[in-house]
């Protein structure tokens, strides 16, 4: 049969040894899908390669596992620290499509402090400066107005005196 010839061709061996060309890899994958016998033979070969590696195994030193666990927990600790740093930015990006109310509900429920978007800082500064400008303008125009009124009053008195 055709498939038996392919199984015997050495294609599976080059594939499991990791030296198959891209074309051969694609061929193996399509044969694996198409022919259950090929799939079974390939899985058996993969298993046998594992058994072969077991026959050449060497027991690692006893401390190796704890070293690996320590390394992995270090990596995870670093990742968690990074995640914590980037979390607010991520939340901000994520909630672009969400309403502002939704964005702050959780914060209010967790503490008495309110977290405000940094962009609001400039709005507050602008409002404060504008407030000062308006106040200055109001005082200036009030004084101007009072002075104008006094001048009118004086002019009226002068005019009355001239008429007499």
């Amino acid at each position: 049969m055709e498939i038996n010839k392919i199984i015997e061709s050495g294609l599976m061996e080059t594939y499991v040894m990791g030296i198959a060309t891209e074309e051969e890899v694609q061929q193996v994958l399509s044969l694996k899908k198409e022919y259950p016998a090929f799939k079974e033979a390939l899985e058996l070969l993969e298993y046998d390669m594992e058994v072969l590696a077991q026959s050449m195994s060497i027991e690692p030193p006893a401390s190796t596992l704890s070293k690996i666990e320590h390394e992995i927990s270090e990596i995870q600790r670093r990742n968690q620290a990074l995640q914590t740093t980037f979390e607010p930015e991520y939340r901000q990006e994520k909630s672009n499509g969400e309403s502002r109310q939704e964005k702050y509900i959780q914060v209010e429920s967790e503490s008495n402090q309110m977290r405000v978007n940094k962009a609001w800082k400039w709005v507050f500064i602008a409002v404060f400066v504008l407030g000062k400008v308006f106040l200055a303008c109001a005082i200036y125009f009030y004084l101007e107005n009072r002075q104008a009124k006094e001048q009118i009053k004086e002019l009226k008195i002068e005019l009355k005196q001239k008429i007499r």
């Binding site: 060497i58 027991e59 190796t64």
Partner: peptide
């Protein structure tokens, strides 16, 4: 246990396989 046997076939230095094993598995 399979990995040091494999590493041993590649790396000549006998001191290194454990270091490689830890680095690779991690």
């Amino acid at each position: 246990p399979m990995l040091p046997g494999y590493i041993n076939g590649i790396v000549q230095d006998h001191q290194k396989p454990e270091d490689h094993l830890v680095a690779i598995l991690t």
